Amino acid sequence: MQRRQLIDFLKGCRARLTPSQVGLPDTNRRRTPGLRREDVAALAGVSVTWYTWLEQGRDIQVSADVLERISTTLRMSADEREYLFALVQHRPAPPTPARVETVSPTIKRMLDAIAVPAIVLTARWDVIAWNDLAIHVIRDYAALPAERRNLLRILLVEDDAYRRNPELYEATARRLLAKFRVDYSQAPGDPAFEELIADLSASCPIFDRLWSLAEVVGTHEAIVTHARAGMVFEHSSYVPEGASKQRLIIFTPCNEASVARVNEALAESKSGARRPTQVN
């Protein structure tokens, strides 16, 4: 554990809550503001001694279930929950039940301002936002139902342009799965990931053949040929601040022909009624 940070963090979380906020009577006899250790222990279903040891940063075994109860008791935000698991177990917090992910207004405005195609992915590679140039140059994601806007499914199953070029299809599948294995490993037990993998295993022969390989790569960055657009892009990936499970993917054209075609698409986009950034 990172002892000092954990001590200060848990004490701070206790101090900001009043007994009435968690359903306890306020006797007005408390010497310090906030909850007592006894209150947190009782609400989380652990002993006072055990919770005291945790808050003191002692070297004790702490299960994910107990950390979840403490997180709930102390009314932690999603970011604070992640921080608690990082301090105590040195790993990301377990996935929460599936919910619809959205992008912030700041990310929407940035997508509209970027002069190259760009999309936003979830950790499971669901496409949840894209700019107008992505529609002009790559594909209209809005034409697909929301549940089918998964980038792996689109490239390996939905888009037959890749399958018409077996060599490119094989190389693309290997590159995508090498990165997806890393993302999957960071979401143990997430039923949404398991559902996607089961679906692709049943519906996509190349996924079923390659998924068990040990090839891994930790970045989306690569220079790739886009089969549908016939263009060469350099992919770069960024994590938006405040949305650690999302990835902004930017498609930068990297030869003269591709630059020219993106510029043409940009001019077409500006000459007509510009569509706003699309979100899932």
Rank of each mutant, 00 (worst) to 15 (best):
P94F: 10
R69W: 03
R99Y: 15
A78G: 11
M110V: 15
Y83D: 03
S104K: 04
T96L: 09
V66G: 07
E68F: 01
T73H: 02
L111A: 02
P94L: 11
P97C: 04
L74I: 06
D79R: 11
D112I: 02
R99V: 14
M76E: 12
K108V: 11
Y83N: 01
K108I: 11
L111G: 00
L111Y: 02
A98H: 15
I70E: 01
A98I: 14
A86M: 14
L74K: 01
V100T: 13
I114L: 15
L67G: 03
P92T: 14
E101D: 13
Q89S: 15
F85C: 01
L84T: 05
I114S: 02
E82G: 14
S104Y: 00
V88I: 09
Q89N: 15
Q89T: 10
V88K: 00
A98L: 15
P92C: 13
V103M: 01
I107Y: 05
T106I: 10
E101A: 14
D112S: 11
P97E: 07
R75Y: 10
A93Q: 09
E68N: 11
I70D: 03
V66I: 15
L74E: 08
R75C: 12
E68P: 02
P105E: 14
F85T: 03
R109A: 15
Y83F: 14
